[in-house]
């Protein structure tokens, strides 16, 4: 297995608050890794450190074995240009979609390709239409985002990220802002991506998705990885009390069998 993302001894503080307290994690090609944890556990921050939406306070991140940034007397130094280039290789999907409302769906999916990667417009349009097809929204290409449902917006956001041909995709609670009946279509798209072999790092509260799709589940608690392993093991037979409590909280109102 080729290693795509490697995170070593990652720390992140916001002022006096240390959110991540030394995380080590590698994600291999084609793997889907799900990060679980209660709010404030640091799972979103960890995800955002992978593509440097947040700059780590300490520790190192590598993509394809290449260290991001350069070492400079003990600390790490990052240049903005290098980070921009890095982000073109890491797709990210957000909780609130962050689509560009002044552009059509097609425009949204073409934008990064044209402005950042310098692809020609016809080439970018072809690629954009392919990706919209892939998420099942080929017929919405000419619409503006305001006319789409939440689930459709999120699938456009996924297409926008995919159009950059990323090595890995980051999903940051992408179904949390959706009406319950729209969650399924987004999870289905993500599952399909996982099955096509996309490398994915997913922060979610959807335990069903973790159980059925993830190769590996990590449980974060107070900035450290408390437990990790295959979903069937971690979700069914957790080792720590904290993880057990977390799972119970999620299944309090399960329908009777």
């Amino acid at each position: 297995m080729t290693e795509i993302v490697r995170i070593e001894n990652l720390h992140k503080s916001f002022g006096p608050l240390e959110v991540l307290k030394g995380i080590d994690l590698t994600v291999d090609s084609g793997e889907t890794v799900v990060l679980l944890g209660s709010s404030g556990s640091g799972k979103s921050t960890l995800l955002r450190c992978v593509n440097f939406m947040e700059t780590p306070s300490e520790g190192q991140v590598s993509l394809h074995g290449e260290l991001v940034g350069s070492e400079n007397n003990g600390g790490m130094q990052y240049r903005e240009r290098e980070l921009c280039k890095l982000r073109t290789r890491i797709g990210m999907v957000f909780q609130h979609f962050n689509l560009f409302p002044h552009m059509t769906v097609l425009g949204n999916v073409m934008e990064g390709q044209v402005t950042v990667l310098g692809r020609s417009k016809p080439e970018a349009e072809d690629k954009a239409r392919q990706q919209l097809e892939r998420v099942g929204l080929a017929d919405k290409a000419e619409e503006y985002p305001a006319r789409l449902s939440g689930g459709q917006k999120q699938r456009v956001a996924i297409a926008r990220a995919l159009a950059m041909d990323p090595d890995v995709m980051l999903f940051d609670e992408v179904t949390s802002a959706l009406d319950p009946e729209l969650v399924g279509e987004v999870l289905k798209t993500m599952r399909q991506l996982a099955e096509e072999g996309m490398t994915m790092l997913v922060v979610t509260h959807e335990l069903g998705f973790a159980y059925h799709v993830a190769n590996r589940v990590l449980f974060l608690h107070e900035g450290t990885i408390l437990e990790q392993g295959e979903p069937q093991k971690v979700l069914k037979d957790p080792e720590t009390t904290r993880m057990r409590e977390f799972l119970e909280g999620h299944s309090l109102f399960k329908l009777p069998d």
């Binding site: 939406m53 957000f94 979609f97 560009f100 990667l117 950059m164």
Partner: peptide, 12 residues
């Protein structure tokens, strides 16, 4: 979120 969306696709 608009800045973040732009940043995430590699925009300066």
């Amino acid at each position: 979120g608009q800045w973040e969306g732009a940043k995430a696709i590699g925009m300066t």
